[in-house]
Nucleic acid binder design. Structure first.
Lengths: 247, 247
DNA sequence: TCTTTAATAGTCACTCTGACTATAAAGAAG
DNA sequence: CTTCTTTATAGTCAGAGTGACTATTAAAGA
Protein backbone atom coordinates (compact mmCIF):
# COMPACT_ATOMS: atom_id res chain seq x y z
CA UNK A 1 0.00 0.00 0.00
CA UNK A 2 0.92 3.57 -0.01
CA UNK A 3 0.91 2.95 3.64
CA UNK A 4 4.36 1.53 4.01
CA UNK A 5 4.72 -1.10 6.67
CA UNK A 6 5.13 0.18 10.14
CA UNK A 7 8.76 -0.23 11.05
CA UNK A 8 9.76 0.24 7.49
CA UNK A 9 13.27 0.69 6.26
CA UNK A 10 13.57 3.22 3.43
CA UNK A 11 15.85 0.80 1.66
CA UNK A 12 13.75 -2.28 2.22
CA UNK A 13 11.88 -1.83 -1.02
CA UNK A 14 13.26 -2.69 -4.39
CA UNK A 15 13.24 0.10 -6.89
CA UNK A 16 10.74 -0.43 -9.66
CA UNK A 17 10.50 1.44 -12.90
CA UNK A 18 6.98 2.67 -13.54
CA UNK A 19 5.80 3.26 -17.07
CA UNK A 20 2.58 3.89 -18.93
CA UNK A 21 1.43 1.99 -22.02
CA UNK A 22 -1.18 3.43 -24.33
CA UNK A 23 -3.73 1.66 -26.49
CA UNK A 24 -4.80 4.49 -28.78
CA UNK A 25 -7.85 3.63 -30.86
CA UNK A 26 -9.50 5.33 -33.77
CA UNK A 27 -12.14 4.39 -36.31
CA UNK A 28 -10.90 4.77 -39.83
CA UNK A 29 -12.74 3.80 -42.98
CA UNK A 30 -15.14 1.73 -40.97
CA UNK A 31 -12.45 -0.28 -39.26
CA UNK A 32 -10.96 -0.06 -35.79
CA UNK A 33 -7.31 0.96 -35.75
CA UNK A 34 -4.71 1.08 -33.01
CA UNK A 35 -1.54 3.15 -32.94
CA UNK A 36 1.70 1.17 -32.67
CA UNK A 37 5.35 2.14 -32.70
CA UNK A 38 8.23 0.13 -34.04
CA UNK A 39 11.00 -0.63 -31.60
CA UNK A 40 14.48 0.40 -32.66
CA UNK A 41 16.36 -1.18 -29.80
CA UNK A 42 16.70 -4.52 -28.09
CA UNK A 43 14.80 -6.22 -26.67
CA UNK A 44 12.14 -6.89 -29.28
CA UNK A 45 14.00 -4.78 -31.78
CA UNK A 46 11.97 -4.38 -34.94
CA UNK A 47 8.80 -5.55 -33.24
CA UNK A 48 5.78 -3.32 -32.89
CA UNK A 49 4.67 -2.17 -29.47
CA UNK A 50 2.19 0.08 -27.76
CA UNK A 51 3.46 3.62 -27.35
CA UNK A 52 4.39 4.63 -23.85
CA UNK A 53 7.21 5.71 -21.60
CA UNK A 54 8.47 6.30 -18.11
CA UNK A 55 6.50 8.18 -15.52
CA UNK A 56 8.62 11.17 -14.56
CA UNK A 57 9.51 11.99 -10.96
CA UNK A 58 6.93 14.73 -10.51
CA UNK A 59 4.01 13.56 -12.60
CA UNK A 60 1.16 11.12 -12.11
CA UNK A 61 0.61 8.17 -14.41
CA UNK A 62 -2.26 9.96 -16.12
CA UNK A 63 -0.11 13.01 -16.75
CA UNK A 64 2.55 10.75 -18.20
CA UNK A 65 -0.05 9.11 -20.42
CA UNK A 66 -1.28 12.43 -21.78
CA UNK A 67 2.27 13.59 -22.35
CA UNK A 68 3.08 10.45 -24.31
CA UNK A 69 -0.20 10.71 -26.18
CA UNK A 70 0.70 14.21 -27.29
CA UNK A 71 4.16 13.12 -28.34
CA UNK A 72 2.98 10.16 -30.37
CA UNK A 73 0.01 11.74 -32.07
CA UNK A 74 1.61 15.11 -32.67
CA UNK A 75 -1.39 16.85 -31.13
CA UNK A 76 -0.97 19.85 -28.89
CA UNK A 77 -1.15 19.41 -25.16
CA UNK A 78 -4.44 21.29 -25.17
CA UNK A 79 -6.21 19.13 -27.70
CA UNK A 80 -4.97 16.05 -25.90
CA UNK A 81 -6.79 17.24 -22.80
CA UNK A 82 -10.10 16.84 -24.58
CA UNK A 83 -9.47 13.27 -25.64
CA UNK A 84 -11.00 10.40 -23.76
CA UNK A 85 -8.28 8.69 -21.76
CA UNK A 86 -9.13 5.86 -19.43
CA UNK A 87 -6.98 3.83 -17.10
CA UNK A 88 -7.24 0.16 -17.97
CA UNK A 89 -5.25 -1.77 -15.42
CA UNK A 90 -1.71 -2.30 -14.24
CA UNK A 91 0.59 -5.05 -15.39
CA UNK A 92 3.21 -6.14 -12.95
CA UNK A 93 4.49 -9.58 -13.86
CA UNK A 94 8.09 -9.73 -12.60
CA UNK A 95 9.38 -10.95 -15.95
CA UNK A 96 7.41 -8.79 -18.29
CA UNK A 97 10.47 -6.77 -19.18
CA UNK A 98 13.72 -8.74 -19.48
CA UNK A 99 15.90 -5.79 -18.56
CA UNK A 100 14.53 -4.82 -15.21
CA UNK A 101 11.53 -4.73 -12.95
CA UNK A 102 8.97 -2.59 -14.75
CA UNK A 103 5.41 -2.05 -13.63
CA UNK A 104 3.21 -0.55 -16.29
CA UNK A 105 -0.07 1.31 -15.98
CA UNK A 106 -2.06 0.79 -19.16
CA UNK A 107 -4.43 3.39 -20.60
CA UNK A 108 -6.89 3.34 -23.45
CA UNK A 109 -7.38 6.48 -25.51
CA UNK A 110 -10.08 7.16 -28.07
CA UNK A 111 -9.30 9.67 -30.78
CA UNK A 112 -11.83 10.94 -33.29
CA UNK A 113 -10.48 11.68 -36.73
CA UNK A 114 -7.30 10.25 -38.10
CA UNK A 115 -4.34 12.47 -37.49
CA UNK A 116 -1.52 10.83 -39.37
CA UNK A 117 0.90 9.63 -36.75
CA UNK A 118 4.25 11.22 -36.61
CA UNK A 119 7.06 9.31 -35.03
CA UNK A 120 7.28 10.40 -31.44
CA UNK A 121 10.51 11.46 -29.84
CA UNK A 122 11.95 8.11 -28.98
CA UNK A 123 10.04 5.80 -31.28
CA UNK A 124 11.43 4.73 -34.60
CA UNK A 125 8.14 4.73 -36.47
CA UNK A 126 4.51 5.15 -35.54
CA UNK A 127 1.67 3.75 -37.58
CA UNK A 128 -2.03 2.93 -37.41
CA UNK A 129 -2.75 -0.79 -37.58
CA UNK A 130 -6.07 -2.39 -38.21
CA UNK A 131 -7.31 -4.03 -35.04
CA UNK A 132 -6.99 -7.77 -34.98
CA UNK A 133 -4.38 -7.90 -37.70
CA UNK A 134 -1.45 -6.97 -35.51
CA UNK A 135 1.48 -9.32 -35.54
CA UNK A 136 2.82 -10.42 -32.15
CA UNK A 137 3.76 -7.33 -30.22
CA UNK A 138 6.69 -6.71 -27.92
CA UNK A 139 6.56 -7.51 -24.21
CA UNK A 140 3.08 -8.39 -22.94
CA UNK A 141 1.47 -5.87 -25.22
CA UNK A 142 -0.69 -8.47 -26.97
CA UNK A 143 -2.39 -9.10 -23.68
CA UNK A 144 -2.74 -5.42 -22.89
CA UNK A 145 -4.21 -4.77 -26.31
CA UNK A 146 -6.67 -7.63 -25.95
CA UNK A 147 -7.76 -6.29 -22.57
CA UNK A 148 -8.16 -2.86 -24.12
CA UNK A 149 -10.42 -4.23 -26.87
CA UNK A 150 -12.60 -5.92 -24.30
CA UNK A 151 -12.85 -2.83 -22.21
CA UNK A 152 -13.71 -0.50 -25.07
CA UNK A 153 -16.37 -2.85 -26.36
CA UNK A 154 -17.93 -3.13 -22.92
CA UNK A 155 -17.77 0.61 -22.32
CA UNK A 156 -19.83 1.28 -25.43
CA UNK A 157 -22.65 -0.69 -23.89
CA UNK A 158 -22.95 1.32 -20.71
CA UNK A 159 -21.56 4.72 -21.58
CA UNK A 160 -21.95 7.42 -24.18
CA UNK A 161 -18.30 7.51 -25.11
CA UNK A 162 -18.83 6.27 -28.65
CA UNK A 163 -18.99 9.96 -29.48
CA UNK A 164 -15.32 10.18 -28.51
CA UNK A 165 -14.53 8.44 -31.79
CA UNK A 166 -16.50 10.99 -33.79
CA UNK A 167 -15.60 14.52 -34.84
CA UNK A 168 -17.31 17.42 -33.10
CA UNK A 169 -20.31 17.17 -35.40
CA UNK A 170 -21.44 13.84 -36.71
CA UNK A 171 -24.42 12.02 -38.15
CA UNK A 172 -26.22 9.18 -36.47
CA UNK A 173 -24.99 6.94 -39.25
CA UNK A 174 -21.42 7.73 -38.32
CA UNK A 175 -22.13 7.08 -34.66
CA UNK A 176 -23.73 3.78 -35.54
CA UNK A 177 -20.70 2.83 -37.57
CA UNK A 178 -18.55 3.31 -34.47
CA UNK A 179 -20.61 0.70 -32.68
CA UNK A 180 -20.61 -1.64 -35.64
CA UNK A 181 -16.87 -1.28 -36.08
CA UNK A 182 -15.91 -1.81 -32.46
CA UNK A 183 -18.35 -4.66 -31.91
CA UNK A 184 -17.92 -6.20 -35.34
CA UNK A 185 -21.65 -6.56 -35.83
CA UNK A 186 -24.36 -4.89 -37.90
CA UNK A 187 -27.09 -2.95 -36.13
CA UNK A 188 -30.57 -2.11 -37.30
CA UNK A 189 -30.57 1.52 -38.31
CA UNK A 190 -34.04 2.63 -37.15
CA UNK A 191 -33.63 0.84 -33.84
CA UNK A 192 -30.23 2.37 -33.23
CA UNK A 193 -31.61 5.77 -34.04
CA UNK A 194 -34.52 5.33 -31.69
CA UNK A 195 -32.25 4.24 -28.86
CA UNK A 196 -29.82 7.13 -29.24
CA UNK A 197 -32.49 9.79 -29.62
CA UNK A 198 -34.61 8.64 -26.71
CA UNK A 199 -31.62 8.54 -24.35
CA UNK A 200 -31.52 12.01 -22.76
CA UNK A 201 -28.18 13.70 -23.15
CA UNK A 202 -26.56 11.17 -25.46
CA UNK A 203 -26.54 13.51 -28.46
CA UNK A 204 -27.92 16.96 -29.12
CA UNK A 205 -29.17 18.09 -32.48
CA UNK A 206 -27.28 20.80 -34.31
CA UNK A 207 -29.64 23.30 -35.80
CA UNK A 208 -29.04 24.47 -39.27
CA UNK A 209 -29.31 22.58 -42.51
CA UNK A 210 -28.47 18.91 -42.60
CA UNK A 211 -25.08 18.29 -44.03
CA UNK A 212 -24.78 17.08 -47.52
CA UNK A 213 -22.09 14.49 -47.35
CA UNK A 214 -21.42 14.69 -51.03
CA UNK A 215 -22.40 11.06 -50.89
CA UNK A 216 -25.52 9.52 -52.29
CA UNK A 217 -28.75 9.26 -50.25
CA UNK A 218 -30.73 11.76 -48.25
CA UNK A 219 -28.56 14.15 -46.28
CA UNK A 220 -28.35 13.36 -42.59
CA UNK A 221 -28.91 15.66 -39.66
CA UNK A 222 -25.91 16.62 -37.58
CA UNK A 223 -25.47 16.05 -33.87
CA UNK A 224 -22.98 16.86 -31.16
CA UNK A 225 -22.06 14.82 -28.14
CA UNK A 226 -24.50 15.43 -25.29
CA UNK A 227 -23.79 16.01 -21.64
CA UNK A 228 -24.56 12.47 -20.49
CA UNK A 229 -21.71 10.08 -19.81
CA UNK A 230 -23.63 7.00 -18.73
CA UNK A 231 -26.14 5.20 -20.91
CA UNK A 232 -29.29 3.99 -19.19
CA UNK A 233 -30.62 1.54 -19.93
CA UNK A 234 -27.52 0.13 -21.63
CA UNK A 235 -27.24 -0.50 -25.33
CA UNK A 236 -26.35 -4.17 -25.25
CA UNK A 237 -24.54 -5.97 -28.01
CA UNK A 238 -26.51 -8.48 -30.03
CA UNK A 239 -25.81 -12.10 -29.19
CA UNK A 240 -25.54 -11.03 -25.60
CA UNK A 241 -21.90 -11.70 -24.96
CA UNK A 242 -21.16 -9.77 -21.79
CA UNK A 243 -17.86 -8.10 -21.15
CA UNK A 244 -15.15 -10.16 -22.69
CA UNK A 245 -13.42 -11.65 -19.73
CA UNK A 246 -15.04 -11.19 -16.38
CA UNK A 247 -11.67 -10.52 -14.82
CA UNK B 1 5.21 1.42 -21.02
CA UNK B 2 7.07 -1.69 -20.36
CA UNK B 3 8.75 -0.64 -23.51
CA UNK B 4 11.45 1.58 -22.18
CA UNK B 5 12.39 4.41 -24.48
CA UNK B 6 14.79 3.52 -27.21
CA UNK B 7 18.10 5.03 -26.24
CA UNK B 8 17.30 4.52 -22.63
CA UNK B 9 19.71 4.87 -19.79
CA UNK B 10 19.23 2.30 -17.04
CA UNK B 11 19.66 5.09 -14.53
CA UNK B 12 17.43 7.59 -16.25
CA UNK B 13 14.36 6.45 -14.37
CA UNK B 14 13.57 7.40 -10.82
CA UNK B 15 13.04 4.50 -8.48
CA UNK B 16 9.46 4.16 -7.36
CA UNK B 17 8.14 2.09 -4.54
CA UNK B 18 5.23 -0.06 -5.66
CA UNK B 19 2.63 -1.17 -3.15
CA UNK B 20 -0.80 -2.75 -3.09
CA UNK B 21 -3.78 -1.45 -1.13
CA UNK B 22 -6.72 -3.66 -0.33
CA UNK B 23 -10.36 -2.77 0.14
CA UNK B 24 -11.66 -5.92 1.81
CA UNK B 25 -15.44 -6.03 2.03
CA UNK B 26 -17.82 -8.29 3.84
CA UNK B 27 -21.53 -8.24 4.65
CA UNK B 28 -22.16 -8.52 8.34
CA UNK B 29 -25.51 -8.28 10.06
CA UNK B 30 -27.01 -6.76 6.98
CA UNK B 31 -24.45 -4.01 6.70
CA UNK B 32 -21.42 -3.61 4.49
CA UNK B 33 -18.12 -3.64 6.34
CA UNK B 34 -14.58 -2.91 5.28
CA UNK B 35 -11.37 -4.06 6.91
CA UNK B 36 -9.07 -1.30 8.16
CA UNK B 37 -5.80 -1.28 10.07
CA UNK B 38 -4.60 1.32 12.50
CA UNK B 39 -1.28 2.93 11.72
CA UNK B 40 1.32 2.76 14.43
CA UNK B 41 3.91 4.97 12.77
CA UNK B 42 4.15 8.39 11.21
CA UNK B 43 2.87 9.65 8.92
CA UNK B 44 -0.80 9.41 9.82
CA UNK B 45 0.05 7.69 13.07
CA UNK B 46 -3.11 6.54 14.82
CA UNK B 47 -5.20 6.97 11.67
CA UNK B 48 -6.94 4.06 10.05
CA UNK B 49 -5.87 2.89 6.63
CA UNK B 50 -6.49 0.21 4.08
CA UNK B 51 -4.32 -2.84 4.60
CA UNK B 52 -1.54 -3.34 2.11
CA UNK B 53 2.18 -3.48 1.63
CA UNK B 54 5.11 -3.49 -0.70
CA UNK B 55 5.26 -5.62 -3.79
CA UNK B 56 8.26 -7.90 -3.36
CA UNK B 57 11.02 -8.19 -5.95
CA UNK B 58 9.81 -11.46 -7.44
CA UNK B 59 6.05 -11.25 -7.18
CA UNK B 60 3.30 -9.61 -9.18
CA UNK B 61 0.93 -7.07 -7.69
CA UNK B 62 -1.83 -9.66 -7.50
CA UNK B 63 0.43 -12.08 -5.67
CA UNK B 64 1.32 -9.33 -3.25
CA UNK B 65 -2.36 -8.57 -2.75
CA UNK B 66 -3.18 -12.20 -1.94
CA UNK B 67 -0.24 -12.41 0.41
CA UNK B 68 -1.36 -9.33 2.28
CA UNK B 69 -4.93 -10.55 2.29
CA UNK B 70 -3.84 -13.78 3.95
CA UNK B 71 -1.79 -11.88 6.51
CA UNK B 72 -4.55 -9.49 7.45
CA UNK B 73 -7.45 -11.89 7.55
CA UNK B 74 -5.55 -14.76 9.09
CA UNK B 75 -6.84 -17.10 6.41
CA UNK B 76 -4.58 -19.73 4.91
CA UNK B 77 -2.98 -19.10 1.56
CA UNK B 78 -5.22 -21.76 0.08
CA UNK B 79 -8.51 -20.33 1.22
CA UNK B 80 -7.38 -16.92 0.06
CA UNK B 81 -7.03 -18.33 -3.44
CA UNK B 82 -10.77 -18.92 -3.57
CA UNK B 83 -11.70 -15.37 -2.61
CA UNK B 84 -12.77 -12.89 -5.19
CA UNK B 85 -9.96 -10.40 -5.71
CA UNK B 86 -10.22 -7.74 -8.36
CA UNK B 87 -7.81 -5.07 -9.44
CA UNK B 88 -9.41 -1.66 -9.07
CA UNK B 89 -6.99 0.91 -10.43
CA UNK B 90 -3.61 2.42 -9.74
CA UNK B 91 -2.99 5.59 -7.78
CA UNK B 92 0.11 7.50 -8.66
CA UNK B 93 -0.17 11.07 -7.51
CA UNK B 94 3.40 12.24 -6.81
CA UNK B 95 2.49 13.53 -3.36
CA UNK B 96 0.24 10.76 -2.17
CA UNK B 97 2.87 9.55 0.29
CA UNK B 98 4.90 12.28 2.01
CA UNK B 99 7.93 10.03 2.53
CA UNK B 100 8.73 9.01 -1.00
CA UNK B 101 7.36 8.31 -4.43
CA UNK B 102 4.90 5.45 -4.00
CA UNK B 103 2.65 4.06 -6.69
CA UNK B 104 -0.10 1.85 -5.37
CA UNK B 105 -2.19 -0.75 -7.14
CA UNK B 106 -5.56 -0.99 -5.42
CA UNK B 107 -7.55 -4.22 -5.17
CA UNK B 108 -11.03 -5.00 -3.94
CA UNK B 109 -11.65 -8.29 -2.17
CA UNK B 110 -14.99 -9.82 -1.24
CA UNK B 111 -15.06 -12.22 1.67
CA UNK B 112 -18.09 -14.27 2.69
CA UNK B 113 -18.51 -14.85 6.38
CA UNK B 114 -16.89 -12.72 9.04
CA UNK B 115 -13.57 -14.11 10.15
CA UNK B 116 -12.57 -11.90 13.04
CA UNK B 117 -9.55 -9.96 11.89
CA UNK B 118 -6.28 -10.61 13.56
CA UNK B 119 -3.68 -7.92 13.42
CA UNK B 120 -1.43 -8.62 10.50
CA UNK B 121 2.32 -8.70 10.81
CA UNK B 122 3.06 -5.04 10.48
CA UNK B 123 -0.27 -3.50 11.38
CA UNK B 124 -1.03 -2.36 14.88
CA UNK B 125 -4.69 -3.34 14.88
CA UNK B 126 -7.13 -4.60 12.31
CA UNK B 127 -10.87 -4.15 12.56
CA UNK B 128 -14.06 -4.29 10.52
CA UNK B 129 -15.69 -0.91 10.04
CA UNK B 130 -19.17 -0.26 8.81
CA UNK B 131 -19.04 1.21 5.37
CA UNK B 132 -19.72 4.91 5.20
CA UNK B 133 -18.93 5.54 8.81
CA UNK B 134 -15.18 5.54 8.46
CA UNK B 135 -13.37 8.56 9.76
CA UNK B 136 -10.85 10.21 7.44
CA UNK B 137 -8.32 7.58 6.45
CA UNK B 138 -4.59 7.91 5.95
CA UNK B 139 -3.05 8.89 2.63
CA UNK B 140 -5.54 8.92 -0.26
CA UNK B 141 -7.35 5.91 1.10
CA UNK B 142 -10.67 7.73 1.35
CA UNK B 143 -10.60 8.14 -2.39
CA UNK B 144 -9.56 4.54 -2.97
CA UNK B 145 -12.31 3.30 -0.71
CA UNK B 146 -14.90 5.45 -2.45
CA UNK B 147 -13.78 4.10 -5.81
CA UNK B 148 -14.00 0.59 -4.42
CA UNK B 149 -17.59 1.14 -3.27
CA UNK B 150 -18.56 2.38 -6.67
CA UNK B 151 -16.92 -0.53 -8.40
CA UNK B 152 -18.46 -3.19 -6.20
CA UNK B 153 -21.92 -1.70 -6.59
CA UNK B 154 -21.56 -1.60 -10.34
CA UNK B 155 -20.16 -5.13 -10.52
CA UNK B 156 -23.25 -6.50 -8.80
CA UNK B 157 -25.32 -5.21 -11.68
CA UNK B 158 -23.48 -7.01 -14.43
CA UNK B 159 -21.89 -10.01 -12.74
CA UNK B 160 -22.82 -12.88 -10.50
CA UNK B 161 -20.26 -12.09 -7.87
CA UNK B 162 -22.78 -11.27 -5.16
CA UNK B 163 -22.39 -14.93 -4.27
CA UNK B 164 -18.81 -14.14 -3.24
CA UNK B 165 -20.24 -12.46 -0.16
CA UNK B 166 -22.22 -15.56 0.77
CA UNK B 167 -21.12 -18.81 2.40
CA UNK B 168 -20.93 -21.94 0.26
CA UNK B 169 -24.64 -22.61 0.73
CA UNK B 170 -27.07 -19.76 1.05
CA UNK B 171 -30.72 -18.87 0.66
CA UNK B 172 -32.09 -16.48 -1.91
CA UNK B 173 -33.04 -14.21 0.95
CA UNK B 174 -29.41 -13.98 2.00
CA UNK B 175 -28.33 -13.29 -1.55
CA UNK B 176 -30.94 -10.58 -1.85
CA UNK B 177 -29.68 -9.02 1.34
CA UNK B 178 -26.23 -8.73 -0.21
CA UNK B 179 -27.70 -6.62 -2.98
CA UNK B 180 -29.77 -4.57 -0.60
CA UNK B 181 -26.80 -4.00 1.67
CA UNK B 182 -24.34 -2.98 -1.01
CA UNK B 183 -26.80 -0.83 -2.90
CA UNK B 184 -28.57 0.51 0.16
CA UNK B 185 -32.01 -0.11 -1.31
CA UNK B 186 -34.85 -2.55 -0.77
CA UNK B 187 -35.72 -4.98 -3.52
CA UNK B 188 -38.97 -6.77 -4.22
CA UNK B 189 -38.55 -10.33 -3.08
CA UNK B 190 -40.55 -12.22 -5.73
CA UNK B 191 -38.99 -10.16 -8.51
CA UNK B 192 -35.49 -10.72 -7.23
CA UNK B 193 -36.18 -14.42 -6.96
CA UNK B 194 -37.49 -14.58 -10.50
CA UNK B 195 -34.49 -12.75 -11.87
CA UNK B 196 -31.94 -14.93 -10.11
CA UNK B 197 -33.65 -18.22 -10.92
CA UNK B 198 -34.24 -17.45 -14.58
CA UNK B 199 -30.62 -16.43 -15.13
CA UNK B 200 -28.88 -19.64 -16.18
CA UNK B 201 -25.87 -20.47 -14.04
CA UNK B 202 -26.34 -17.76 -11.42
CA UNK B 203 -27.23 -20.20 -8.65
CA UNK B 204 -27.85 -23.92 -8.51
CA UNK B 205 -30.27 -25.57 -6.14
CA UNK B 206 -28.93 -27.80 -3.40
CA UNK B 207 -31.04 -30.93 -3.11
CA UNK B 208 -32.01 -32.12 0.28
CA UNK B 209 -34.28 -30.54 2.82
CA UNK B 210 -34.51 -26.78 3.05
CA UNK B 211 -32.57 -25.41 5.93
CA UNK B 212 -34.43 -24.34 8.98
CA UNK B 213 -32.80 -21.13 9.97
CA UNK B 214 -34.09 -21.37 13.48
CA UNK B 215 -35.75 -18.12 12.53
CA UNK B 216 -39.40 -17.54 12.09
CA UNK B 217 -41.14 -18.10 8.77
CA UNK B 218 -41.10 -20.89 6.23
CA UNK B 219 -37.69 -22.51 5.79
CA UNK B 220 -35.89 -21.46 2.62
CA UNK B 221 -34.28 -23.63 -0.03
CA UNK B 222 -30.51 -23.64 -0.23
CA UNK B 223 -28.43 -22.75 -3.27
CA UNK B 224 -24.79 -22.73 -4.30
CA UNK B 225 -23.02 -20.29 -6.59
CA UNK B 226 -23.47 -21.31 -10.22
CA UNK B 227 -20.90 -21.44 -12.99
CA UNK B 228 -21.85 -18.16 -14.63
CA UNK B 229 -19.76 -15.08 -13.97
CA UNK B 230 -21.61 -12.54 -16.09
CA UNK B 231 -25.23 -11.58 -15.60
CA UNK B 232 -27.27 -11.09 -18.74
CA UNK B 233 -29.35 -9.12 -18.94
CA UNK B 234 -28.01 -7.10 -16.03
CA UNK B 235 -29.80 -6.65 -12.74
CA UNK B 236 -29.95 -2.88 -12.62
CA UNK B 237 -30.30 -0.87 -9.45
CA UNK B 238 -33.58 0.92 -8.88
CA UNK B 239 -33.50 4.66 -9.48
CA UNK B 240 -31.20 3.90 -12.36
CA UNK B 241 -28.04 5.52 -11.13
CA UNK B 242 -25.40 3.98 -13.36
CA UNK B 243 -21.89 3.26 -12.19
CA UNK B 244 -20.95 5.84 -9.61
CA UNK B 245 -18.45 7.98 -11.37
CA UNK B 246 -17.87 7.37 -15.05
CA UNK B 247 -14.16 7.56 -14.46
C1' DT C 1 -37.07 10.83 -65.68
C1' DC C 2 -35.94 6.65 -63.46
C1' DT C 3 -33.01 4.13 -60.38
C1' DT C 4 -30.21 3.73 -56.44
C1' DT C 5 -28.84 4.94 -51.94
C1' DA C 6 -29.26 6.44 -47.43
C1' DA C 7 -32.03 8.96 -43.74
C1' DT C 8 -36.13 9.10 -41.28
C1' DA C 9 -40.90 7.60 -39.69
C1' DG C 10 -43.75 4.24 -37.97
C1' DT C 11 -45.74 -0.58 -36.71
C1' DC C 12 -46.08 -4.94 -34.14
C1' DA C 13 -45.00 -8.67 -31.28
C1' DC C 14 -42.14 -10.32 -27.72
C1' DT C 15 -39.39 -9.99 -23.45
C1' DC C 16 -38.31 -8.21 -19.22
C1' DT C 17 -39.49 -5.77 -15.27
C1' DG C 18 -42.00 -3.36 -11.42
C1' DA C 19 -45.91 -3.62 -8.63
C1' DC C 20 -48.98 -6.51 -6.88
C1' DT C 21 -51.88 -10.51 -4.75
C1' DA C 22 -52.11 -15.19 -3.05
C1' DT C 23 -50.61 -19.37 -0.82
C1' DA C 24 -47.54 -22.35 2.14
C1' DA C 25 -44.93 -23.45 6.14
C1' DA C 26 -42.66 -22.39 10.04
C1' DG C 27 -42.42 -20.14 15.12
C1' DA C 28 -44.79 -17.28 18.69
C1' DA C 29 -48.75 -15.83 21.39
C1' DG C 30 -52.99 -16.67 23.43
C1' DC D 1 -54.32 -26.21 19.72
C1' DT D 2 -55.93 -22.27 17.52
C1' DT D 3 -54.55 -17.84 15.82
C1' DC D 4 -51.24 -14.46 14.56
C1' DT D 5 -46.93 -13.23 12.64
C1' DT D 6 -43.23 -14.01 9.68
C1' DT D 7 -40.85 -15.54 5.74
C1' DA D 8 -40.62 -18.34 1.43
C1' DT D 9 -42.68 -19.28 -2.79
C1' DA D 10 -46.20 -18.98 -6.72
C1' DG D 11 -48.55 -16.35 -9.88
C1' DT D 12 -50.80 -12.14 -12.33
C1' DC D 13 -50.85 -7.92 -15.01
C1' DA D 14 -49.60 -3.65 -17.18
C1' DG D 15 -45.92 -0.78 -19.07
C1' DA D 16 -41.19 -0.04 -20.91
C1' DG D 17 -37.81 -1.35 -24.11
C1' DT D 18 -36.27 -3.89 -28.02
C1' DG D 19 -35.85 -6.72 -32.39
C1' DA D 20 -37.66 -7.27 -36.81
C1' DC D 21 -40.00 -5.09 -40.22
C1' DT D 22 -42.32 -1.83 -43.73
C1' DA D 23 -42.98 2.81 -45.59
C1' DT D 24 -41.66 7.36 -46.91
C1' DT D 25 -38.44 11.15 -48.07
C1' DA D 26 -34.55 13.34 -50.23
C1' DA D 27 -30.50 13.35 -52.35
C1' DA D 28 -26.98 11.57 -56.41
C1' DG D 29 -26.18 9.01 -60.66
C1' DA D 30 -27.60 6.84 -65.13
Amino acid sequence: MSTAPEGYDPHAFVPFAVTVDLAVFTVREGRLHVLLVERGEAPYRGRWALPGGFVLPRESAEEAARRELAEETGLTRNSVCALHLEQLRTYSDPDRDPRMRVVSVAYAALVPDLPEPRGGGDAARAQWWEAGGTEPLAFDHDRILADAYDRIGARLEYSCLATAFCPAEFTLGELQQVYETVWGVELDRPNFRRKVLTTPGFVQAVDGPPRRTGGRGKPAALYRAGAATALHPPLLRPEGRPEGRTS
